[in-house]
């Protein structure tokens, strides 16, 4: 099992970050994400919480031995559930891989909360775990590859989302100033 975590602040108000969240892709810095689909969305009429289920389609170079050993293809799908809670000003996102999930799971948790009027904290964890009943060396190799891929995507994800937020709110400020 591998555990990953990181945290930092975005220099934008919480509401701006959450409005921007739906516009993160397509993104030249995250070119591995090629599709985003909404499968379910509910607005709770009492709490105002919006729950959204999405599927992200990714295309990423996969080592030949993984394709040979586990099957699958370079197209991978991830299921993501998000909760936007305006009362508690909290957004929680959980993502789990669909592809190769019979062999290993990568469960990611993200949370956005305001730290001040103009700053939003981002916390992210991920656990990568091979399921038991597979050959040990292959399981370790698959885990390692998933961790590397996750870390690489987490790194570009931050840069990519910073660009989107910067561009979105910069443009609006410019329009408002005219």
């Amino acid at each position: 099992m591998h555990f990953f975590n990181q945290a930092f602040d975005y220099d934008h108000p919480w509401s701006h970050v959450i409005i921007g969240m739906w516009r993160k892709y397509p993104n030249p810095k995250c070119s591995h994400v090629i599709s985003v689909d909404v499968l379910d969305r509910t607005v709770d009429p009492v709490t105002g919480v919006i729950r959204t289920e999405r599927v992200l389609g990714c295309k990423q170079k996969t080592p030949g031995w993984i394709l040979r050993f586990f099957g699958g293809s370079e197209d991978a799908y991830v299921r993501e559930i998000s909760f936007v809670d305006p009362i508690n000003q909290r957004t929680s996102i959980t993502s789990v891989n669909l592809s190769l999930s019979q062999f290993a799971t990568c469960v990611e948790h993200i949370e956005y909360r305001p730290t001040s009027q103009n700053h939003t904290s981002f916390r992210q964890t991920a656990e990568v775990q091979a399921r038991m009943a597979i050959w040990r060396t292959a399981a370790d190799g698959l885990e390692r590859w998933m961790v590397q891929r996750f870390e690489q995507n987490a790194h570009v994800g931050k840069l990519a989302f910073s660009d989107v937020l910067h561009q979105l709110w910069q443009e609006r400020q410019a329009t408002a100033a005219v």
Binding site: F3, L39, V55, Y77, S92, S99, H109, R123, Q124, E127
Partner: peptide
């Protein structure tokens, strides 16, 4: 989803993690 065979993977994922409520970010491995 059906055509691409993603619906079966989704069904399994929904059973395993229904995620009807928000999950707090864990501070350490589970």
């Amino acid at each position: 989803l059906k055509e691409k065979g993603i619906d079966d993977m989704l069904k399994q994922a929904r059973e395993e993690h229904p995620l009807k409520e928000a999950v707090p970010v864990p501070s350490s491995p589970s």
